[in-house]
Simulated scan of single mutants.
Amino acid sequence: MKVAFLQYDVVHNKEKNFDHIVSVLRQQRCELLVLPELSLCGYLFSNRKALAECAETVPAGISTQRMMILSKEYACTIVFGLAEKENGKFYNTAVVVSKGKYIGKYRKIHLSDFEKKLFERGTENLVFELDGIKIGVQICFDLWFPEVSREQLRMGADIFCVLANFGGETTYHISKIRAIENLTPLVLCNRIGEESLPDMDAKFLGKSTILDASGQSLCVAPERQKTTGCCEVSISKTRSNIICNNFDREIAFHY
């Protein structure tokens, strides 16, 4: 499967972010494209009122509709992040669209203390099936909790897609652990750039990566640089390594 990440400086301007995504897709074709967390609207909001001005419904909102059209035009699957609104509540959401169709959405379960001031916690762990391949979607801090990945594995995930906004290297290192301990490929897309509030500054690292099922890096983006990474990833329905020829059967064993 040809997978890609798009590492860029997400600004508080949907049109500029969308135009950049389009410009990259014109030059780089792939089957699966993963974008950063909150990839169309930016990360820091002073309050819920400011967040409400850019939040959208899913899938009826304009951003999801435009991404559906884009995925059809380039015959690919796109996993992107936005601020979702529903019944007066807001969610940090990843949306999956593929070849012109809306596939589904995943709401971030593990929120930072800052995010808890703005967003509601997601309550459902999900995988999404695309042409016989199941992808597990996570958002940044979710990756710190091994239960999320393992539950997605039990649901049949063949590859993990992680949308992120982080500044230090911890999440980058954890991504390798998740790939190794689940013998599952992983695409991590982090953003770059800086955002500020009167009492908070955020500087985003980049260093997006594509990992194979052994945790080896197939592609790593440089720190704090706008770039795209793209490579072929082997998807296997049978997980095994040198010491275990049926990993799925082993994790299903209960003490």
Results as ranks from 00 to 15, higher is better:
Val3Thr: 04
Tyr8Ser: 12
Asp9Asn: 05
Asn17Leu: 12
Val24Cys: 09
Arg29Met: 02
Glu31Leu: 04
Leu32Lys: 00
Leu32Gln: 01
Leu33Ile: 00
Val34Arg: 00
Pro36Asp: 03
Leu40Asn: 00
Leu40His: 00
Leu44Gly: 12
Leu44Ala: 09
Leu44Met: 11
Ser46Ile: 15
Glu53Leu: 03
Cys54Gly: 05
Val58Gly: 02
Pro59His: 07
Gly61Ser: 09
Gly61Tyr: 01
Gln65His: 13
Lys72Ala: 12
Glu73Phe: 08
Glu73Arg: 11
Tyr74Thr: 00
Thr77Cys: 08
Phe80Pro: 10
Gly81Lys: 02
Gly81Tyr: 00
Glu84Phe: 03
Glu86Asn: 14
Glu86Met: 13
Glu86Tyr: 12
Lys89Val: 08
Ala94Glu: 03
Val95Lys: 06
Ser98Lys: 05
Lys99Ala: 06
Gly100Val: 09
Tyr102Phe: 15
Tyr106Ile: 04
Lys108Tyr: 01
Lys108Arg: 06
Lys108Ser: 06
His110Leu: 13
Leu111Gln: 07
Leu111Ile: 00
Ser112Glu: 07
Asp113His: 02
Asp113Ala: 11
Phe114Tyr: 12
Thr123Gly: 08
Glu124Pro: 07
Asn125Met: 13
Phe128Ser: 04
Glu129Ile: 10
Lys134Ala: 13
Ile135Gln: 05
Gly136Phe: 03
Ile139Lys: 00
Glu147Trp: 11
Ser149Ile: 04
Met155Ala: 10
Asp158Val: 14
Asp158Gln: 15
Ile159Glu: 00
Leu163Gln: 12
Gly167Gln: 05
Gly168Gln: 01
Glu169Arg: 05
Thr170Ala: 09
Thr171Trp: 03
His173Tyr: 15
Lys176Leu: 03
Ala179Met: 10
Glu181Gly: 07
Glu181Gln: 11
Asn182His: 11
Val187Asp: 00
Leu188Asn: 04
Cys189Ile: 02
Gly193Glu: 01
Glu195Ile: 04
Leu205Ser: 02
Leu205Pro: 02
Ser208Gly: 07
Asp212Ile: 06
Asp212Tyr: 06
Gln216Cys: 11
Leu218Lys: 06
Leu218Phe: 05
Cys219Trp: 05
Val220Lys: 09
Ala221Asn: 06
Pro222Met: 09
Arg224Thr: 04
Arg224Ser: 12
Cys230Met: 07
Ser234Pro: 01
Ser236Phe: 09
Thr238Ala: 14
Asn245Leu: 14
Asn246Cys: 15
Phe253Gln: 14
Tyr255His: 14
